[in-house]
């Protein structure tokens, strides 16, 4: 509730503050309190400073959030205001086969992508951790997919995984058969997951690098003296030392994975692959809610499910962290 009143309070305050602000430089006219120095001078201008930010954030994040909640209980369409329909949208969801397909795919995406994004970037970070000659080049190179647009990345891999693309040409050259990565429902989803992991590797690698820099070198040396091999040192020294970072990566990547849109949209096409079987939840929101005949109310109900699952995922990861502490 505070969030909605903030922008409104701001606009009235800001208007009233105009002239006062201009004169405040000379140290005149404090209206609020006998306070000292900086405090006295600044009673109105803060709202002017914060106004643009609060306005944008209020109008395009907080207001849409509330209006999504409200719309989910209406039958609003793009061109029709709509009326309150209670839980009708949510009842319809339960019987909507496409909704369950979307929920299944988005959930599968979390299951498939998150473990890979917790482990692989850590291994990659260990690989680029030592300051050997040329290592900054490799670090930058591994980060390049993060910089590229998801559209570029998606289209690059559509061509790589094409029936007659590079991967299949190589497979055929070595005597293995061609694989229809982009025509089979499940292969398509797994390929999209692989692309998500590929694009995310460099990002989480940098996060892990920062965490690894704080692991005392003595721990490794002591373990090595005790005769622990590389794998044992990884399990007994590295993993416990970066565990909180692993939880952070788990939280960030699971929320992102559940909201997946672009990779699948580009690789499976707008309709979500064969018979729409590769549709994700956010793809469904986009398909149902946009355009001139968009069902805003129904799409908002799906969005609410996205919110709820996202929050639940965060809490789940954080709880798992606390349990391990105990």
């Amino acid at each position: 509730m505070k969030s909605t009143t903030a922008p409104r309070a701001l606009s009235s305050d800001a208007a009233a503050a105009g002239p006062t602000h201009r004169s405040s430089g000379s140290g005149r006219g404090p209206r609020r309190g006998p306070a000292t120095g900086i405090r006295r001078q600044l009673s109105f201008s803060p709202w002017l400073f914060a106004a643009p930010g609060l306005l944008i954030v209020g109008a395009f994040s907080l207001y849409p959030f509330l209006s999504t909640l409200v719309n989910s209980f209406t039958d609003r369409r793009t061109l029709v205001p709509g009326e309150f329909v209670g839980l009708a949208n949510f009842r319809e969801l339960i019987h909507d086969e496409m909704f369950w397909i979307g929920l299944r795919n988005s959930a599968l995406y979390v299951v498939g992508v998150v473990p890979a994004l917790i482990i692989l970037p850590l291994l990659l970070a260990l690989l680029v951790q030592r300051n050997i000659p040329g290592i900054t080049f490799f670090r930058s190179a591994f980060y390049t997919p993060v910089v590229a647009s998801i559209v570029v990345v998606g289209l690059i891999w559509v061509w790589m995984l094409d029936d007659r693309g590079l991967i299949n040409a190589v497979l055929e050259a070595v005597g293995a058969g061609r694989i229809g990565f982009l025509s089979d429902q499940w292969l398509l989803l797994f390929s999209a997951m692989a692309v998500t992991v590929w694009k995310g590797l460099g990002y989480y690698m940098i996060i892990y690098l920062a965490a690894l820099a704080n692991v005392p070198r003595e721990l490794h040396e002591a373990a090595a003296v005790d005769g622990a091999g590389a794998i044992r040192r990884f399990v007994t020294v590295t993993v416990p030392a970066v565990r909180s970072t692993m939880v952070l990566v788990g939280a960030l990547s699971s929320v992102a994975a559940f909201k997946v849109f672009s990779e699948v949209y580009l690789m499976a096409g707008p309709s979500g692959g064969p018979a729409g079987e590769d549709t994700t939840l956010v793809m469904l929101v986009q398909r149902v809610g946009t355009g001139l005949s968009g069902r805003v109310g129904y799409a908002s109900a799906i969005s609410v499910v996205v919110f709820v699952v996202t929050v639940a995922l965060m809490l789940l990861v954080l709880r798992a962290d606390r349990k391990e502490d105990a």
Binding site: P7, G53, G58, P64, F65, K259, G289, V296, S303
Partner: peptide
């Protein structure tokens, strides 16, 4: 207000942003 706004997932509000 800014913290809450940061937590709102863009993907969940695009339809409302569109309207």
């Amino acid at each position: 207000a800014f913290i809450l706004a940061m937590l709102v997932p863009v993907e969940g509000i695009i339809i409302a942003q569109f309207t």
